[in-house]
Amino acid sequence: MTTPVLFDLPGPKARRRIRIGTAVGVLVVVAIIALVLARLAGNGQLEAQRWAVLFDPASQVPQALGQALLRTLQVAIVGMVLATVLGLLLAVGRLSEHRWVRVLVSTLIEFFRAVPLLVLIFALYFLLPKFGIRLSAFWALVGGLVLYNSAVLAEIFRAGILSVDRGQREAAYGLGMRKTQVMTLVLLPQAIRRMLPVLIAQLVVLLKDTSLGFIISFPELLRGARSLVEFFTLQFGNQYTFQLYVAAAVVYIVINLLLSWLARYVERRTRTSQKAAATTPTELPADVQMGGGGGAVPAAR
């Protein structure tokens, strides 16, 4: 542990106080947990039978949740790949030498960052058909995620491209490369490598946002859990409701924690292997992590 700067390393008296504080803190937390558990138990929510349904193949629940998770991952992965590609194009467009390209691309980016994702998905699914363009629920969801996330990623990529040392660009021009070559052979490869941890972190955001598919009834994980709830409620009352939602939440949290962990791992690897990566932004801005919305103002640079 590094030496804290906000407080002295505690002396004997302070250590005692901290121990007391720790004990009190632990007690409070334990008390809250105990209260919640007692209330849950009082409502019969802790019965083993109720939780067993999540693991009992005969109930079809594990299979159904697995299928729903698969669809969620499909949306997230297809969305991520397309958003990365489109985000790169937008980033390059925003750095273009032609003014009209810059203005056009900037407007697009700002627009898609300013519109709530839910509204975007809704528009793709319900409005486009009125103009003769039909999208399935899958593609409407993916489309909304791609439009929003590519706008966010474009800003991140742009920062990444700009973070490559200016000397490299000048050297590349000095070698007689054309601007396309400089971008594709020199700047982008380095930027993408540096951006890798951020890209993985963005996948967490995207995965969370797939749950917005509820507005167009796409059967993703959360919706899948709800369908199971509805089916079981008819026969068994609401005895599995709480358990199924907890299961969905736990799956999201576990997958996202694993992804965050992977992002940090990759980040450590890139940092140790490359001296040049020192100035790279390695974490997503907090507002981007929130998903759904995203900042309307360009992230501070």
């Binding site: 039978q49 109720r50 067993a52 349904v53 009992d56 193949p57 005969a58 109930s59 079981f232 005895q239």
Partner: peptide, 11 residues
């Protein structure tokens, strides 16, 4: 938990 079967699974 899988060991103890659920009502939903049985039916």
């Amino acid at each position: 938990l899988a060991g103890c079967s659920s009502e939903a699974g049985q039916q």
